[in-house]
Simulated assay, not measured.
Amino acid sequence: WPLNRRILYNRASADPQGRPWSERKKYVWWDEEQRKWTGYDVPDFPVTRPPDYTPSPGATGMDAHSGSDPFIMKPDGKGWLFVPKGLKDGPLPAHYEPAESPVHNALYQQQSNPAAKYFQGKPYNRLAAVGDENYPIVITTYRLTEHHVSGAMTRWLPWLNALQPELFAEISPELAAEKNIKHGDWMIISTPRGEIDARAMVTKRMRPLLIKGRAVHQIGVPFHWGYQGKATGSITNDLAHMVLEPNVSIEEAKAFLCNIRPGRLP
């Protein structure tokens, strides 16, 4: 978007001379006869800029990028291993476990991002300890195509509600058997912050993870429902903690810990 490109920076699929790196990886390349970039995608690059183009002194914007600089959204057109300024963490990528995790960081001693905003000590933001036996299951949240925004708008549309009428949780057959939950049953999901109920969707898409010899289960829960609209349901974000990424304060609600049991809330 807006040019319907499939792969950003696809100029990088060709070498500095504009030739495909290999026939197998051939994707976008410079056509010398037509004097333009062509291929299997819309070129993410000035289409008539030849590979040997050299910017003039004092050139600005896209004119400052040479014909072999594919990363057009970077000021210098180059690929970066790290951001040279502005980040509150980094500069190189590092693996941290989420604020709530069933396992210790296997790479080094720092468990989670020390620069994140944790709001510690708040009664509404209690965190489960690493490997907490009361909350052994990993939960991830996500969107659905039918409720493509938050749900606040789409829950008022009957035809979308007919496609996705109520909150559900995807769980593996192994976890369902362990918890005595059948497909379509109601189940309660709990975290240190609260509880919600949802329908169980038993599916092989959710697979247990084998970590250091033990099974770690995971469930998936969309977050589109609430107390208003033509289709209502529990609020998934009632389960999530308030832990914010240090640079732009994105909430870390894609992975935290929970437990489940059959039944409904009163």
Rank of each mutant, 00 (worst) to 15 (best):
A12V: 05
A162I: 00
A152Y: 05
K230N: 10
G77D: 02
G194C: 11
H183N: 15
W159T: 07
M242S: 14
P208V: 08
E133T: 10
S13P: 10
G263Y: 05
P165S: 11
E166I: 02
L127V: 05
M206K: 15
V149N: 07
P57F: 01
L127D: 07
E146H: 03
K254T: 06
Y108E: 13
E32T: 11
K179M: 09
E133Q: 05
I250Q: 09
P173G: 09
P192Q: 03
I219F: 09
G79C: 04
I188G: 09
R155F: 02
Y53L: 04
A99T: 09
E178L: 14
D44L: 01
M187E: 05
N237H: 12
V130Y: 03
H104G: 08
I260T: 05
L92W: 13
G18C: 15
S234Q: 11
G263H: 05
F45W: 00
E97M: 14
I188Q: 02
K74M: 08
G184E: 02
K117S: 06
A129R: 06
G86H: 06
E195S: 15
D185P: 07
W37S: 01
G226P: 10
F119M: 14
D52T: 06
S13K: 11
Y9F: 07
L163D: 07
G77H: 04
H224T: 06
A253V: 12
S172H: 04
L163N: 11
V103H: 13
T232D: 08
S56V: 02
K25M: 00
G61N: 04
P222S: 10
D197Y: 10
I189Q: 01
R49M: 00
F82H: 15
A231Y: 09
I72N: 01
L244C: 05
P20D: 11
P51G: 07
G229T: 05
Q120K: 15
N4Q: 01
R126Y: 01
A176W: 09
N105W: 12
A99H: 12
M62N: 04
H148W: 11
L87M: 11
I137F: 04
G220Q: 02
L167P: 08
P222Y: 12
L127Q: 11
N180S: 15
V103W: 10
M153L: 12
V149M: 00
V83W: 08
P114D: 01
K78Q: 06
A12L: 04
A106M: 13
E178P: 00
P173L: 13
P20I: 10
P192C: 00
R126V: 11
Y142V: 00
W1E: 13
A106P: 08
E252S: 14
L92Y: 14
P165K: 00
M242D: 12
A176R: 06
S150Q: 05
Y96W: 14
S101D: 04
C258V: 08
P75M: 03
P208A: 08
F45L: 01
L167C: 02
W21L: 11
I188A: 09
A99Q: 06
P123E: 07
A255G: 01
E133M: 04
V248S: 12
D44C: 10
P51T: 02
G77I: 04
N180E: 15
D52M: 02
V221P: 11
R214L: 03
G79L: 10
R207C: 00
E100R: 12
P114I: 02
F82G: 14
M187N: 00
I196Q: 03
